[in-house]
Design a protein around this nucleic acid. Sequence first.
RNA 1: GCCCCCGUAGCUCAGUUGGAUAGAGCAUCGGUUUCCUAAACCGAGGGCCGCAGGUUCGAUUCCUGCCGGGGGUACCA
Length: 600
Amino acid sequence: MSKDQFKQLFADKAAQAFKATFPEAYAATGEKEVFDARFILEHLEKPKDPSMGRFAFPVFRYAKLLSAKPPDIAAGVVEETNRLLGDDADCTAAAVSGFINVSVDPSELASLTLGNVLSRESHYGDSDFGQNRKYLIEYCSANIAKPYGVGHLRSTIIGNSLRRVYKKLGFEVIGINYLGDWGTQFGKMIVAYRMWGEKVNLEKDAVKQLLELYVRFHDEAKKDPTLDEEARQAFKQLEDGESEAVQLWERLKTISLAELDRIHNMLGVEFDIITGESSVNDKMEPLVERLQKAGLTEISRGALVVPLDDPNLPPCMLKKGDGATLYATRDLAGLVYRWQTYHFYESLYVVGTAQSDYFKQIFKVVSMLEEAENVPETDRMTGRAKHIDFGWVLFEGETMAMRTGKVIFLEDVIDRAVALAREKILEKNPSLDAIDATAHKIGVGAVIFSQFSVRRHKAVNFDWDEVLSFEGETGPYLQYTHARLCSLLRHYGQDITSKIDAALLDNVEERRVVELLADFPEIIEDAARTYDPHVIAAYLLRLAAALNKFYQRKDEKGRIDKIISDNQALSAVRMALVKSVQTVLCEGLYLLGMEAPEEM
RNA sequence: GCCCCCGUAGCUCAGUUGGAUAGAGCAUCGGUUUCCUAAACCGAGGGCCGCAGGUUCGAUUCCUGCCGGGGGUACCA
């Protein structure tokens, strides 16, 4: 997938060099593929220290095959590779113990990279890999009639970012908010509303009041278990279409949708489709019949289930003893429907790790169904639907649960972050024009970025101090760096051109920034491959740190080496670098779902 | 009991499909601003990479076991 021309060039030459340097061993070996350019290209790695080279290839694995010591192999291959590359090549190899380190001519890399970024602008890093392929991404998936807790933030933020990442790689992406608007929980809400709902004022803070009803229901149900039974009956009434229950449901749904919309506008989160579990109501029965016809179902303890041929998974339940459907029934119906409708390349479910067994069940049922029906290989969706799981958000070491009312509302988090950002602006830059709008971008940015500071799988402890921190490895740090560059560009006032003398970028700070800029396209592919925007977040921190280092570098006399100086040619090339970093920071922040203010 | 995730500096975490001296931020201490935005930069201290085996030329990374934390384990979602 990598299009790095230097890597490709080196891999080709090194492959030839191996064969030329060790002809007998190559002829004798049964493992010819490890001498192919393709193999070498795939096994290139990044040296620990950038000063050792742009990329490296370890040759230890050849020691046994060639009956030679790694340093000798490296030295021999390096000599031949450099000969093949020729004197005026832009990259040169060097043998360091068992490694072949390859350096790329810095000014060549600089003029190529800056030329690329300046000409493609926000499209730098775009790819056509995804052409004619579709991605479905389901995220947020909040439950109707419950407030937006920080627990849903992770799914929403990760999904929103992945949507942008896959679009950048050329896929057609459909972001779906598949709301929890069906199920026994609605039975609970209906019962609670019938009993205590007359006091609820739905005009104001409706969702928080609904939460109180929900919590109260759970409290009372502990004392009086018949309430749970009543809730199940109420849900059955809803599924049977009884008008009183349906009306109540519609009302709760309208309130909740407006609330969700409001929060997502605050966050800048986008969806292509907003739907819900209730939308698959008419698709469940055909699916159940299909599974029955395939001979996969059985009645167990009064319920309709699909036994799975995996000893570690319980059967997948399709219908409860009372005939009502479950989450799995709806998800399966939805998945099959989506496959038929979109023939997606992949379909991602951005849902917490707590449901990983559940998704294994769902995907298992699908593969068993396709197997039983002998679906042609090319028409199978098995392996294309994936659970993108993430660690749970804990608060003070405990899980947050709506049921117990132990919840932090997302809106409160955003409000506090924005207020703090506003304070900070008043303190640092009170003459700023759009203080409120900027404070919003920064506060929201801090909240969003906090979700990317940790790898997906790790459970995160919600920490007010951490989310409200604007220093160090934070969203506002990236935004600040971006704003600083914008300020420089305004100050410079001249056109940025790629007609520059890249050789003037001759100090390590500048070269490091160039190298990082050149890495951006690969970083996006990494994020896509691992389904984790954290990769981009970590990269942007490296880029911003390198930039700030360059920005504040000192000359031999200990004075700040200014970017804009009397030296016109030097200023021009440095400003081309500045413009390139600003472009990549802006685009990177966009991919994370954040805004990049020009002043702050 | 069984299954999944996690265990790295005082704290929060990085560490690319195994690779060259294990890195950041926060916190602590000490520096940098006649100001191209100090929300920044520089420096210092701080590590049996949970424990024990195994595979390998090489293991923080892969495998097995154990310990510790979290989650899941059919009529919730």
